[in-house]
Amino acid sequence: MITKEEVEHVGWLARVEIDEKESDVYAEKLNSVLDYFGQLDEVDTKDVPPTYHVMDVVNVFREDVVKESMPQDIVLSNTEHKKEGNFKSPRIM
């Protein structure tokens, strides 16, 4: 069972602001899903390796050859928040 407090903590980890009122609703909805997910406990997975990649491929590389970068105005074209060629955001702390 995920608690209200855990919902708020996960909200912070995921940088999704959740106010106290919402955390109740989230907890309820998430719990019904987590409850369903709990059925995986029934499956015996001892000695079963995880499948991270469905295709068995290794060592895919690129040569160390320079490709053209984007012009600065294109890099910054999707934001209004910029200054002297930099992105601009609120302070960090």
Partner: peptide
């Protein structure tokens, strides 16, 4: 930070959390 919708927030973490919310 780089594209799309941005909400107001007086520091980056708050801005990001509100943007995403």
């Amino acid at each position: 930070t780089r594209y799309g919708f941005r909400a107001d927030g007086d520091n980056w973490h708050v801005m990001a959390s509100k943007t995403r919310a």
